[in-house]
Protein backbone atom coordinates (compact mmCIF):
# COMPACT_ATOMS: atom_id res chain seq x y z
CA UNK A 1 0.00 0.00 0.00
CA UNK A 2 1.60 3.21 -1.12
CA UNK A 3 2.02 5.89 1.51
CA UNK A 4 -0.52 8.62 1.11
CA UNK A 5 -3.25 6.12 0.31
CA UNK A 6 -5.74 6.11 3.10
CA UNK A 7 -8.26 3.62 1.75
CA UNK A 8 -8.04 0.79 -0.74
CA UNK A 9 -11.23 -0.90 -1.84
CA UNK A 10 -10.78 -3.99 -4.00
CA UNK A 11 -13.50 -5.95 -5.76
CA UNK A 12 -16.00 -5.17 -3.06
CA UNK A 13 -19.35 -6.89 -3.39
CA UNK A 14 -22.27 -6.63 -0.99
CA UNK A 15 -25.33 -8.85 -1.09
CA UNK A 16 -28.60 -9.01 0.76
CA UNK A 17 -29.13 -12.65 1.64
CA UNK A 18 -32.77 -13.33 2.11
CA UNK A 19 -34.99 -16.38 2.06
CA UNK A 20 -36.43 -15.54 -1.29
CA UNK A 21 -33.08 -15.03 -2.97
CA UNK A 22 -29.94 -12.97 -3.09
CA UNK A 23 -29.76 -9.38 -4.21
CA UNK A 24 -26.42 -8.06 -5.28
CA UNK A 25 -26.49 -4.47 -4.16
CA UNK A 26 -22.86 -3.64 -4.87
CA UNK A 27 -20.94 -5.55 -7.53
CA UNK A 28 -17.18 -5.53 -7.75
CA UNK A 29 -16.28 -1.96 -6.83
CA UNK A 30 -12.63 -0.95 -6.58
CA UNK A 31 -10.96 2.38 -5.92
CA UNK A 32 -8.13 4.02 -4.01
CA UNK A 33 -8.43 7.09 -1.85
CA UNK A 34 -5.45 9.29 -1.11
CA UNK A 35 -4.97 11.30 2.05
CA UNK A 36 -6.86 14.59 1.90
CA UNK A 37 -8.80 13.62 -1.21
CA UNK A 38 -12.48 14.46 -1.71
CA UNK A 39 -14.29 11.66 -3.48
CA UNK A 40 -17.89 12.16 -4.56
CA UNK A 41 -20.11 9.13 -5.17
CA UNK A 42 -23.21 9.96 -7.17
CA UNK A 43 -26.21 7.97 -8.28
CA UNK A 44 -29.95 7.53 -8.13
CA UNK A 45 -31.77 5.62 -5.45
CA UNK A 46 -31.11 1.94 -5.60
CA UNK A 47 -27.72 2.26 -7.25
CA UNK A 48 -25.93 0.89 -4.22
CA UNK A 49 -24.06 4.00 -3.14
CA UNK A 50 -25.37 4.02 0.42
CA UNK A 51 -24.78 0.28 0.70
CA UNK A 52 -21.21 0.80 -0.50
CA UNK A 53 -20.74 3.48 2.10
CA UNK A 54 -22.03 1.31 4.91
CA UNK A 55 -19.84 -1.53 3.73
CA UNK A 56 -16.76 0.66 3.90
CA UNK A 57 -17.68 1.84 7.37
CA UNK A 58 -18.45 -1.74 8.41
CA UNK A 59 -21.94 -0.73 9.41
CA UNK A 60 -23.86 -3.32 7.43
CA UNK A 61 -26.74 -5.04 9.19
CA UNK A 62 -28.01 -8.53 8.35
CA UNK A 63 -29.26 -9.51 5.86
CA UNK A 64 -26.67 -7.34 4.14
CA UNK A 65 -23.22 -8.85 3.97
CA UNK A 66 -19.90 -8.28 2.27
CA UNK A 67 -19.62 -11.34 0.08
CA UNK A 68 -16.25 -10.67 -1.47
CA UNK A 69 -13.48 -8.13 -1.72
CA UNK A 70 -11.51 -6.12 0.78
CA UNK A 71 -11.57 -2.73 2.42
CA UNK A 72 -8.05 -1.81 3.46
CA UNK A 73 -7.95 1.23 5.69
CA UNK A 74 -4.51 2.49 6.63
CA UNK A 75 -3.01 -0.89 5.90
CA UNK A 76 -5.54 -3.06 7.71
CA UNK A 77 -8.29 -5.05 6.08
CA UNK A 78 -11.48 -4.00 7.82
CA UNK A 79 -13.59 -6.86 6.56
CA UNK A 80 -13.73 -9.52 9.21
CA UNK A 81 -12.53 -7.44 12.13
CA UNK A 82 -14.36 -7.94 15.39
CA UNK A 83 -16.45 -5.20 16.93
CA UNK A 84 -13.78 -4.56 19.50
CA UNK A 85 -11.08 -4.10 16.88
CA UNK A 86 -13.37 -1.88 14.88
CA UNK A 87 -14.20 0.24 17.90
CA UNK A 88 -10.59 1.27 18.19
CA UNK A 89 -10.64 2.53 14.63
CA UNK A 90 -14.08 4.08 14.65
CA UNK A 91 -14.22 7.75 15.27
CA UNK A 92 -10.50 8.02 15.91
CA UNK A 93 -9.44 7.34 12.36
CA UNK A 94 -12.71 7.07 10.50
CA UNK A 95 -15.97 8.80 11.29
CA UNK A 96 -19.38 8.88 9.68
CA UNK A 97 -21.84 11.73 9.13
CA UNK A 98 -25.36 10.47 8.53
CA UNK A 99 -28.08 11.76 6.32
CA UNK A 100 -30.41 13.12 8.91
CA UNK A 101 -29.13 14.67 12.09
CA UNK A 102 -32.45 14.11 13.80
CA UNK A 103 -31.99 10.40 13.28
CA UNK A 104 -28.38 10.28 14.33
CA UNK A 105 -28.43 12.60 17.32
CA UNK A 106 -29.95 11.47 20.58
CA UNK A 107 -32.99 13.69 21.09
CA UNK A 108 -32.93 13.44 24.88
CA UNK A 109 -29.32 14.42 25.38
CA UNK A 110 -27.71 17.80 24.92
CA UNK A 111 -25.07 18.20 22.23
CA UNK A 112 -22.38 18.54 24.83
CA UNK A 113 -23.44 15.32 26.54
CA UNK A 114 -23.20 13.46 23.25
CA UNK A 115 -19.73 14.81 22.61
CA UNK A 116 -18.77 13.72 26.12
CA UNK A 117 -20.14 10.24 25.45
CA UNK A 118 -18.12 9.93 22.29
CA UNK A 119 -14.92 11.07 23.93
CA UNK A 120 -15.35 8.94 27.02
CA UNK A 121 -15.92 5.93 24.82
CA UNK A 122 -12.48 6.51 23.37
CA UNK A 123 -10.71 6.91 26.66
CA UNK A 124 -10.64 10.65 27.16
CA UNK A 125 -11.34 10.98 30.85
CA UNK A 126 -10.44 14.48 31.90
CA UNK A 127 -13.42 16.81 32.07
CA UNK A 128 -11.31 19.79 31.16
CA UNK A 129 -10.02 18.11 28.04
CA UNK A 130 -13.51 17.13 27.01
CA UNK A 131 -14.90 20.60 27.50
CA UNK A 132 -12.07 22.20 25.64
CA UNK A 133 -12.22 19.88 22.66
CA UNK A 134 -16.01 20.13 22.46
CA UNK A 135 -15.88 23.89 22.33
CA UNK A 136 -13.08 23.73 19.80
CA UNK A 137 -14.88 21.53 17.31
CA UNK A 138 -18.05 23.59 17.58
CA UNK A 139 -16.11 26.72 16.84
CA UNK A 140 -14.58 24.97 13.86
CA UNK A 141 -18.00 24.57 12.31
CA UNK A 142 -19.10 28.05 13.19
CA UNK A 143 -21.37 27.36 16.15
CA UNK A 144 -21.12 29.28 19.40
CA UNK A 145 -19.92 26.86 22.12
CA UNK A 146 -22.74 27.89 24.41
CA UNK A 147 -24.89 25.59 22.28
CA UNK A 148 -23.24 22.64 23.96
CA UNK A 149 -26.09 22.87 26.41
CA UNK A 150 -28.77 22.82 23.68
CA UNK A 151 -30.83 19.83 22.71
CA UNK A 152 -31.04 18.82 19.05
CA UNK A 153 -34.60 20.01 18.62
CA UNK A 154 -33.63 23.47 19.77
CA UNK A 155 -31.23 23.91 16.89
CA UNK A 156 -32.13 24.66 13.30
CA UNK A 157 -31.60 22.04 10.62
CA UNK A 158 -28.39 23.61 9.42
CA UNK A 159 -26.97 23.85 12.92
CA UNK A 160 -27.83 20.23 13.63
CA UNK A 161 -25.94 19.06 10.59
CA UNK A 162 -23.01 21.21 11.58
CA UNK A 163 -22.92 19.75 15.06
CA UNK A 164 -22.93 16.27 13.51
CA UNK A 165 -19.91 17.27 11.48
CA UNK A 166 -18.31 18.73 14.58
CA UNK A 167 -18.82 15.42 16.34
CA UNK A 168 -17.16 13.66 13.46
CA UNK A 169 -14.15 15.96 13.88
CA UNK A 170 -13.57 15.19 17.54
CA UNK A 171 -10.52 13.02 16.99
CA UNK A 172 -9.37 14.57 13.74
CA UNK A 173 -9.91 11.40 11.75
CA UNK A 174 -8.12 10.58 8.55
CA UNK A 175 -11.30 9.69 6.73
CA UNK A 176 -14.79 11.11 7.06
CA UNK A 177 -17.65 9.34 5.33
CA UNK A 178 -20.72 11.42 4.59
CA UNK A 179 -24.06 10.05 3.49
CA UNK A 180 -26.07 12.87 1.90
CA UNK A 181 -25.56 15.24 4.83
CA UNK A 182 -27.21 18.15 3.07
CA UNK A 183 -30.32 16.58 1.64
CA UNK A 184 -32.61 17.86 4.37
CA UNK A 185 -31.41 21.43 4.02
CA UNK A 186 -32.51 24.35 1.89
CA UNK A 187 -30.31 25.57 -0.90
CA UNK A 188 -28.65 28.44 0.95
CA UNK A 189 -27.91 26.33 4.03
CA UNK A 190 -26.68 23.60 1.73
CA UNK A 191 -24.19 25.82 0.00
CA UNK A 192 -22.96 27.19 3.29
CA UNK A 193 -22.45 23.71 4.70
CA UNK A 194 -20.57 22.51 1.64
CA UNK A 195 -18.23 25.49 1.85
CA UNK A 196 -17.70 24.78 5.52
CA UNK A 197 -16.89 21.14 4.86
CA UNK A 198 -14.39 22.05 2.20
CA UNK A 199 -12.75 24.59 4.48
CA UNK A 200 -12.45 22.06 7.27
CA UNK A 201 -10.93 19.59 4.88
CA UNK A 202 -8.33 22.05 3.74
CA UNK A 203 -7.61 22.97 7.32
CA UNK A 204 -7.36 19.50 8.85
CA UNK A 205 -6.37 17.43 5.85
CA UNK A 206 -8.78 14.50 6.11
CA UNK A 207 -10.12 12.52 3.18
CA UNK A 208 -13.83 12.60 2.44
CA UNK A 209 -16.16 10.16 0.74
CA UNK A 210 -19.33 12.10 -0.02
CA UNK A 211 -22.40 10.25 -1.22
CA UNK A 212 -25.21 12.18 -2.85
CA UNK A 213 -27.90 11.90 -5.47
CA UNK A 214 -27.35 15.51 -6.50
CA UNK A 215 -24.43 15.70 -8.87
CA UNK A 216 -24.25 19.46 -9.04
CA UNK A 217 -23.70 19.67 -5.32
CA UNK A 218 -20.23 18.12 -5.44
CA UNK A 219 -19.24 19.60 -8.76
CA UNK A 220 -17.22 22.38 -7.16
CA UNK A 221 -15.85 20.47 -4.22
CA UNK A 222 -14.80 16.97 -5.10
CA UNK A 223 -11.48 15.94 -6.62
CA UNK A 224 -12.78 12.80 -8.21
CA UNK A 225 -16.29 11.67 -8.99
CA UNK A 226 -17.71 8.15 -9.14
CA UNK A 227 -21.04 7.63 -10.86
CA UNK A 228 -22.81 4.45 -9.79
CA UNK A 229 -25.66 2.69 -11.51
CA UNK A 230 -27.39 -0.55 -10.62
CA UNK A 231 -24.69 -1.55 -8.15
CA UNK A 232 -21.68 -1.03 -10.42
CA UNK A 233 -19.37 1.83 -11.24
CA UNK A 234 -20.48 3.49 -14.46
CA UNK A 235 -17.93 6.24 -14.67
CA UNK A 236 -15.02 7.28 -12.46
CA UNK A 237 -12.63 10.12 -13.02
CA UNK A 238 -11.54 13.64 -12.18
CA UNK A 239 -14.59 15.72 -11.34
CA UNK A 240 -14.09 18.46 -13.87
CA UNK A 241 -13.46 15.90 -16.58
CA UNK A 242 -16.64 13.98 -15.81
CA UNK A 243 -18.67 17.18 -15.83
CA UNK A 244 -17.14 18.75 -18.91
CA UNK A 245 -16.89 15.59 -20.98
CA UNK A 246 -19.11 12.86 -19.58
CA UNK A 247 -18.54 9.57 -21.37
CA UNK A 248 -21.13 7.12 -20.08
CA UNK A 249 -24.63 7.66 -21.52
CA UNK A 250 -25.98 7.53 -17.97
CA UNK A 251 -23.70 10.34 -16.80
CA UNK A 252 -24.68 12.33 -19.85
CA UNK A 253 -28.35 11.75 -19.13
CA UNK A 254 -27.90 12.59 -15.46
CA UNK A 255 -26.13 15.85 -16.19
CA UNK A 256 -28.78 16.75 -18.71
CA UNK A 257 -31.51 16.16 -16.19
CA UNK A 258 -30.56 19.30 -14.27
CA UNK A 259 -32.45 22.31 -15.58
CA UNK A 260 -30.12 25.24 -15.60
CA UNK A 261 -30.62 28.60 -13.97
CA UNK A 262 -28.58 30.39 -16.53
CA UNK A 263 -28.40 29.95 -20.24
CA UNK A 264 -31.19 29.15 -22.66
CA UNK A 265 -34.34 27.35 -21.61
CA UNK A 266 -34.44 24.04 -23.39
CA UNK A 267 -36.85 21.15 -23.11
CA UNK A 268 -35.26 18.17 -21.36
CA UNK A 269 -36.25 14.55 -21.33
CA UNK A 270 -34.49 13.09 -18.33
CA UNK A 271 -33.85 9.38 -18.47
CA UNK A 272 -36.95 7.32 -19.24
CA UNK A 273 -37.61 4.12 -17.34
CA UNK A 274 -36.43 3.21 -13.88
CA UNK A 275 -33.38 1.61 -12.29
CA UNK A 276 -33.02 -2.17 -12.59
CA UNK A 277 -34.39 -4.56 -10.03
CA UNK A 278 -31.24 -5.75 -8.32
CA UNK A 279 -32.82 -9.09 -7.52
CA UNK A 280 -33.29 -9.78 -11.23
CA UNK A 281 -30.30 -8.30 -12.98
CA UNK A 282 -30.67 -8.59 -16.74
CA UNK A 283 -27.73 -10.00 -18.68
CA UNK A 284 -25.49 -7.49 -20.33
CA UNK A 285 -25.11 -3.85 -19.43
CA UNK A 286 -27.41 -2.77 -16.65
CA UNK A 287 -28.17 0.53 -18.31
CA UNK A 288 -29.09 -1.04 -21.66
CA UNK A 289 -32.89 -0.86 -21.23
CA UNK A 290 -32.71 2.92 -20.81
CA UNK A 291 -29.73 3.76 -22.94
CA UNK A 292 -30.27 6.01 -25.96
CA UNK A 293 -27.12 4.64 -27.58
CA UNK A 294 -27.68 0.97 -26.92
CA UNK A 295 -26.18 -1.57 -29.31
CA UNK A 296 -26.98 -5.22 -29.81
CA UNK A 297 -23.89 -6.28 -27.88
CA UNK A 298 -24.92 -4.30 -24.81
CA UNK A 299 -27.91 -6.48 -24.12
CA UNK A 300 -25.90 -9.67 -24.09
CA UNK A 301 -22.48 -8.96 -22.66
CA UNK A 302 -21.75 -6.81 -19.60
CA UNK A 303 -19.02 -4.24 -20.30
CA UNK A 304 -15.88 -3.94 -18.20
CA UNK A 305 -14.31 -0.69 -17.04
CA UNK A 306 -12.30 0.85 -19.84
CA UNK A 307 -9.75 3.64 -19.50
CA UNK A 308 -10.24 6.80 -21.52
CA UNK A 309 -7.84 9.64 -20.76
CA UNK A 310 -7.63 8.89 -17.07
CA UNK A 311 -11.37 8.29 -16.65
CA UNK A 312 -12.77 4.80 -16.21
CA UNK A 313 -16.03 4.15 -18.02
CA UNK A 314 -18.11 1.00 -18.22
CA UNK A 315 -19.40 1.25 -21.75
CA UNK A 316 -18.72 -0.49 -25.05
CA UNK A 317 -18.74 2.86 -26.78
CA UNK A 318 -15.39 3.51 -25.21
CA UNK A 319 -13.65 0.18 -25.17
CA UNK A 320 -13.88 -3.56 -25.32
CA UNK A 321 -13.64 -3.51 -29.06
CA UNK A 322 -16.66 -1.37 -29.82
CA UNK A 323 -19.90 -2.93 -31.10
CA UNK A 324 -18.19 -6.30 -31.40
CA UNK A 325 -19.58 -9.21 -33.39
CA UNK A 326 -23.28 -9.11 -33.88
Amino acid sequence: MTSGTVLEVRDLSVSYLMDRGTTLAVDDVSFDLSAGEFLGIVGESGCGKSTLLFAIAQLLVTPAEITSGSVTFKGRNMVGLTDKELAAVRWRDMSVVMQSAMNALNPVKSIGAQFTDAMRAHGVASKGEIAERSAEVLRMVGIDPLHLKSYPHQLSGGMRQRSMIAMAMLFTPDLVIMDEPTSALDVVAQRSLMVQIKELQEQLGFAIIFVTHDMSLVSHFSDRLMVMYGGVVAEFGATRQVFDTPLHPYSIGLLDAFPSIRGPRVPLTGIPGSPPDLANIPPGCRFAPRCPKVMARCEVEPPELYQVDGTLVRCFLHGGGGPGDD
Binding site: V187, Q190, D214, S260
Partner: peptide, 8 residues
Protein backbone atom coordinates in the same frame (compact mmCIF):
# COMPACT_ATOMS: atom_id res chain seq x y z
CA UNK B 1 -26.69 29.64 -3.86
CA UNK B 2 -28.10 27.32 -6.52
CA UNK B 3 -25.38 24.83 -7.45
CA UNK B 4 -24.71 24.91 -11.16
CA UNK B 5 -21.98 22.63 -12.41
CA UNK B 6 -21.60 24.66 -15.56
CA UNK B 7 -20.86 27.89 -13.72
CA UNK B 8 -17.82 28.59 -11.53
Amino acid sequence: AVPDPRAP
